[in-house]
Simulated assay, not measured.
Amino acid sequence: MAEIKTRPTDVSVDAFLDGVAHPARRADGITVRALMERVTGEPATMWGPSIVGFGSYHYRYASGHEGDMCRVGFSPRSANLVLYVGGFPEFEALLEKLGKHRRSKACLYLNKLADVDADVLEEIVRRTYAATEGVDHCTVC
């Protein structure tokens, strides 16, 4: 079985965010980190080489594959700010109020934070974090 690369590391979140080349993406990453720390009460931790995550939960797919992942997280990538959120019943309704974004099954892509409603984003983070409490299966995969 392949080794899971997305796991907590000892890499400094500050150093990672300071190293983001795009100034606006770096600033948005710092802002999202503060939001997620405040909402979750968890410290930021690097998950793999590029995900800033908060908390953890164990998941198990129907196939039997299992592992651990952050309860909420983000990655300030070159093209977009990627948020790892969702998996709760009201997610679609909140996305309609969020503002400019794209999404995939398990990721939310933002060009910049200024494009979205900060209160709605905070509610999405809060509900995602709550939805992963005691989870033993992936609800967004």
Rank of each mutant, 00 (worst) to 15 (best):
A79T: 10
R25A: 12
H101I: 02
V72Y: 07
V135W: 09
E96K: 13
D136R: 13
A114P: 01
V52Q: 02
G64L: 03
S12Q: 11
P76L: 05
E37R: 09
I51L: 12
T45S: 14
H22F: 08
L35S: 04
L98V: 01
W47Q: 00
V135H: 13
Y57M: 07
K112H: 11
L110R: 01
V32K: 06
I124A: 05
A21T: 11
W47P: 01
F88N: 04
A34S: 12
E90V: 01
G53F: 04
V85G: 03
S75C: 05
I30T: 10
Y109K: 03
V125T: 04
E3V: 12
P8S: 15
R26M: 09
L94P: 02
K112R: 14
A27P: 02
R77S: 06
A24H: 12
A34R: 15
A21M: 07
G55R: 08
V120S: 04
M46P: 03
E66M: 11
T31H: 06
A93E: 14
L98Q: 08
T6M: 12
L98G: 03
C141N: 11
A93S: 11
D18S: 15
R38D: 13
C141M: 10
K5Q: 13
L108S: 00
F91L: 07
E133F: 14
R26D: 09
V32T: 11
Y109V: 06
G53V: 06
G67N: 08
A131K: 02
E123P: 03
G99P: 08
W47D: 01
T6L: 15
D68G: 09
V11N: 12
G87K: 12
A24C: 00
T40E: 01
V52A: 05
L121E: 02
S75D: 06
V82K: 01
A130V: 09
R103Q: 12
M46D: 06
I4A: 13
V140S: 08
A106T: 10
I4P: 03
D68R: 15
P76V: 10
A21K: 14
I30S: 09
A130I: 06
M46I: 10
H58S: 15
I51P: 00
A114V: 12
D117M: 09
